[in-house]
């Protein structure tokens, strides 16, 4: 049977991707952040996952405001990157696991999670930055991938509670897959940041640290946060933190924190890297 061996939380800020491309990991500004990724990589090399489910939001590559699914899942044999408007070199494609994706779809929709099914899906920096942060040193991605996109762009985005509940069903679906596969879930985005308005450049370190503590030990309390509370506390784009709850819901009742760090500012953002294992 498939087994969830752990979860990783990480921001997916484009500037992290640029730092990797430009090999700046050892610059004084970047080193503390990449120390966190080094610890996550050590853990992942130990658990050797076969499949990674990446919970992320698209920023205008595959989805646009013309059609905005609340939750969307990839069911493609390949996932390609493309120009996001920045003229950057595109990264090589990720292999999907079509049968595994369809199993998740066939379990989750009857359980009440109305996913949008995507047999073609371009993946943007929200998906790629976390994967590059762990595996950019390898010539090929060593895992198969399932993109799991959440609308965090256009209100109303799903509630924190809904994300947690979706994560629980995702966890059940993974655990019922008949093949022996080790699965890691990435919860990406956040932490606190606001990119526009007169309040641009807002970061809330105390809230981020508390969120890290609670995502491990008391995720139910985070589920009670309304969108307005989250935006006040974490900034307009800090609402991406709801995606961490999808990952956390999938991991089950209690978890062990294998690694945790927090750095700011990474670009405009508070950045928290955590490695969690089901207890």
């Amino acid at each position: 049977m498939a087994q969830i061996v752990g979860g990783i939380t990480t921001s997916h800020i484009p500037s992290i991707g640029n730092a990797i491309t430009n090999k700046q990991q050892d610059d004084p500004y970047w080193r503390p952040l990449f120390d966190g990724y080094d610890r996550a990589r050590e853990w992942i090399e130990k658990v050797e996952p076969d499949i990674v489910v990446v919970v992320y939001n698209d920023h205008g590559l595959n989805f646009f405001l013309d059609k905005m699914p609340t939750f969307a899942i990839g069911a493609a044999p390949k996932y390609h990157n493309a120009d996001e408007g920045w003229g950057l070199a595109t990264l090589h494609s990720f292999d999907g696991d079509v049968e595994f994706s369809w199993h998740l779809i066939e379990q989750m929709i009857p359980a009440g999670i109305d996913l949008t099914i995507c047999q073609e899906m371009l993946i943007d920096h929200g998906f790629i930055v976390p994967m590059s942060a762990i595996w950019s040193h390898l010539p090929e991605w060593p895992v198969k991938a399932v993109p799991f996109a959440v609308n965090t762009v256009l209100m109303p985005v799903p509630t924190a509670q809904r994300c947690f509940d979706v994560g629980k069903e995702l966890g059940k679906a993974i655990a019922s897959y008949p093949e022996d596969k080790k699965v890691v879930i990435f919860g990406t985005g956040g932490m606190s940041h606001q990119l526009s308005g007169e309040r641009a450049g807002f970061i809330n370190k105390a809230f981020d640290r508390e969120f890290q503590e609670k995502i491990a030990n008391d995720p139910e309390s985070l589920c009670k946060l309304s969108h307005t509370e989250l935006i006040k506390l974490a900034g307009a784009e800090g609402i991406e933190l709801i995606m961490w709850l999808v990952m956390r819901g999938a991991l089950g009742k209690s978890v062990n924190v294998v690694h945790q760090n927090y750095e700011l500012p990474i670009s405009n953002t508070g950045s928290g890297i955590m490695v969690l294992e089901p207890a």
Binding site: R199, H227, K232
Partner: peptide, 17 residues
């Protein structure tokens, strides 16, 4: 919406979209 009154913040919902 109650998020319309957060100072310096333009939450992106139906009206703005």
């Amino acid at each position: 919406h109650d998020y319309d009154d957060i100072p310096g913040t333009y939450v992106f919902g139906g009206r703005r979209s």
